[in-house]
Design a protein around this nucleic acid. Structure first.
Lengths: 229, 229
DNA sequence: TAAATAGTGTCTCTAAGACAGTATGGA
DNA sequence: TCCATACTGTCTTAGAGACACTATTTA
């Protein structure tokens, strides 16, 4: 109020929780920390905003993810800001966490060559040494992904450009940890008008499966009802 | 990556969009700016985090709101971070916007004595000179409030501790800009188990109306379906 | 007793769940 | 021909919308 006090500035970082689903397992991209603090522990990919390179924080998140994976995610949204005096030993810190999705195959090849970035199954996280409060941030993010999956088709962003209903169903079931009626999914796909029926079908052990793809101009649709818990 | 470059830090602020409903109108708390930039324009209450006073950004939002209104809001949640090089003439800035609700009567008396804080009807905003991108932030916030009102009973936080179904119905109708069936609201109130039936009733021009209040331990319930748009 | 607001009973409507039945590929 | 997976038809179910009906207060 009084005008020109000096106010100490907190550290501000941008971190991303990048999910994918592979082999019926929800995985998150983690990076082995090369520096202090938490050197050697696993942490979320992220870093400081660079006001010469980034037009906004979304760009920071994308840039840092591209550094680690060579790709930009299929989907990116803000999760939330976490802040406090004790979460970073260097002092009061403010982290903007993002939540992102990508198809496993998009980054798999590139990632294997980068020793320090790794897909970790979410269920294995508790066995690892993780940096800061990143485990809680991932848990928050997982809840958000689950919730959104109940009223949208967000999990398509974990699949390649062309995909089958069966693949989408499997990814959704992995995320919500419940079985899903194929019929319910097909009704939503039709009602959303977000997808195109490709002229190809692929083999999958039985009758050929229709391939679908996101329309170019598609916006993600939110349904009026949740899938039942 | 390389280690110790000097990175210019962006300005980081916390602003709040505090809503209330009064006389069937959605209003937002605005403050006349005493200093540059945008001196004399209307802006959102907010300011810099003070790491000696605030345990986290929620506290910053509450503290700044208390400065203006003398009260802490009934409900507060993060909206989102907005950032960019051009939104503040002083340079690259990052703002964490909060979204908050309060009963009009809680702050009305105090506010009238503070010349510089004022409830502005959301519909009148375009006639005012507003600071930064605060008009867009308010619009975003309004959309979030509307959306949440479709699947929760959040608008109770715009009412006094004891309230009637009719009052809640009126507030909801103001927010969603649609009529609502009293029956639908009563079903939700019952199903949520969030409320207690008071032993008082109040007069309202006809039959006495039952007073309800939030249970002490009540968590806000999210319903499986939206009210219909 | 009329007007006004509170509250109930009950039918319709919509979209999800369940599940049996059909279709079509590969071994 | 059998099995596996893809897809469809259709009944059930849960909860919102509509709206007429009853209840209780003040003027």
């Amino acid at each position: 109020m009084a005008g020109h006090e000096i106010i100490k500035k907190p550290l501000f970082t941008v971190d991303s929780v990048l999910f994918t689903v592979h082999e019926d397992t929800l995985k998150v991209l983690m990076v082995k920390r090369a520096q202090q603090p938490f050197q050697g522990a696993w942490g979320l990919p992220g870093g400081f905003i660079d006001i010469d390179l980034d037009q906004n924080t979304d760009m920071t998140a994308r840039r840092k993810l591209a550094d680690k994976t060579g790709f930009t995610p299929n989907y990116l949204e803000q999760l939330q800001v976490i802040s406090g005096p004790d979460r970073d030993p260097r002092g009061f810190s403010v982290t903007l966490a993002y939540f992102a999705l990508v198809a496993h195959q998009s980054v798999a090849s590139h990632i294997d060559s980068v020793e320090m970035a790794c897909w970790i199954p979410v269920s294995k996280l508790k066995e690892l040494t993780t940096a800061f409060d990143h485990r809680q941030i991932i848990e928050l993010s997982r809840q958000r992904l689950k919730q959104k999956t109940l009223y949208s088709l967000l999990p398509v962003f974990c699949l390649p450009q062309k995909f089958t209903i069966g693949q989408l169903m499997a990814v959704i079931e992995t995320i919500i940890e419940k079985p899903l009626q194929r019929k319910s999914l097909m009704r939503r796909i039709e009602a959303s008008e977000m997808f195109e029926i490709s002229n190809e079908k692929i083999s999958s052990g039985g009758r050929l499966a229709q391939l679908y793809s996101l329309k170019l101009d598609a916006n993600i649709v939110n349904f009026e009802r949740n899938l039942s818990i």
